[in-house]
Nucleic acid binder design. Structure first.
Lengths: 230, 230
DNA sequence: GATGATTTGTACGTATGTATA
DNA sequence: ATATACATACGTACAAATCAT
């Protein structure tokens, strides 16, 4: 329990301490290092980072706004604990949002952005062949983010990113079953083709199904385990 | 400039001071009392409410998370100033979200909730006849909220409410042109009918068009005035 | 149920960074 | 460009509420 000899908090240039805490704690929650339900003690976290409670408090409030943390008045902050039902609702919502992104992207993406989307997608092939699951996870995020951006609506993009993050916090690597990777690449191919052809309804439909497929895997996992994964 | 003789902040039971500040400032921003771009000085606001800067700070951060306030590091907090383009993006996004709500509501609303929706809608008739614009504004919110809830997905509901609030902050009463009220009631009628008949695609389409109609009025207004309204 | 310990909520002072002269 | 003024960012102390005993 005698951890953190030096203050392990590197500040990006121009970054405030509270922003850095948001960054670090958020990553730890999304990655599962801080499991749902874990108490987030202000003083303890502050000591860990070599900070006072003030910037930690602000960071916890900000994380609460994104849904990664739950703060109960006079009771403290906890890594958000999401019931299976709520999590399935989030997936359902995310499927709609991603579907919207794909549809708008099909209508709005132009020259350069379209080429980049193709390049990103094709880069995934190699990762599938290599069975590089970590690499594919990053690739997957890149592809989806390219589509969010291609939708040409910042409000939509931000909302989709936010929901994706809050969902990511509650599905561990377990979800990324081996078979899913090659299936995912195939589904991506269909979606990218629809976008490049400007077929918005098809892009929306395929993307929604793509996300709901992940949800089905998640649901099966959740029902079996009866607990929220790390 | 010698305002606020008594501390004008009433705390709801169990409410923290910072939560109360969020409530009051948020209402003032949405209602237009605090116009976009207005500087929100921590010390000044704290003095106004008879509080120290700490709860005010936390309130400003929370409002920033909802998009009503913009905080720039070391520079302070301001009522969010949204460009015309960004505002139109928000409207576009809101139209999609409300459309989703209507579609899900058509699939999921059951007995009691359906009856309540009908009742709410019919209550609007009287307000239109009376040309009660303030009353209709409240009624309009009630109807839309009933549909959000009827969608049966909390994530979707919260996101829709959030976008609606942030849009509301930038359209003043001017938008609610006299003719719009009766038109709105007619459009509501079509939407409610589609929901009660369980026709999800039609409910989605009608609701999206309903919101985009408001957007067109807003756009015309914005283009004319060349400024963000109060 | 009462009391003490612990943690959060708030107040206030200092340091740091930004903007202006 | 340097200095000055000012608001925020952070630290510290105290009050209030919750939890444990």
């Amino acid at each position: 329990m005698t951890d953190a000899p030096p203050p392990p908090l590197r500040l990006a240039p121009g970054e405030t301490r509270s922003a850095a805490v948001v960054r670090v704690l958020g990553a730890q929650i999304v990655s599962g290092q801080l499991p749902p339900g874990r108490k987030l003690d202000e003083a303890q976290i502050g000591a860990h980072f070599g900070l006072s409670r003030t910037p930690v408090r602000e960071a916890l409030r900000e994380l609460a706004a994104t849904g990664l943390v739950e703060v109960r008045p006079h009771r403290g902050a906890f890594v958000a604990e999401v019931s299976t039902d709520k999590m399935l609702e989030k997936f359902e919502f995310m499927a709609e949002l991603e579907g919207l992104c794909a549809g708008y992207a099909a209508r709005r993406m132009q020259g350069t952005a379209r080429d980049q989307l193709s390049e990103i997608h094709e880069a995934g092939m190699m990762l599938v062949e290599r069975r590089d699951r970590a690499g594919y996870r990053d690739h997957n995020i890149r592809l989806h983010e390219a589509i969010y951006t291609g939708a040409g609506n910042d409000s939509l993009r931000e909302a989709t990113q936010s929901v994706r993050r809050s969902v990511a916090a509650f599905r561990a690597a377990q979800f990324d079953l081996k078979e899913r990777i090659s299936n995912s690449q195939v589904e991506h191919g269909l979606i990218v083709t629809a976008i490049l052809q400007g077929d918005a309804p098809e892009a929306t439909r395929l993307m929604r199904r793509h996300i709901l497929t992940v949800m089905d895997a998640a649901e099966a996992y959740l029902r079996e385990k009866r607990v929220i994964p790390i």
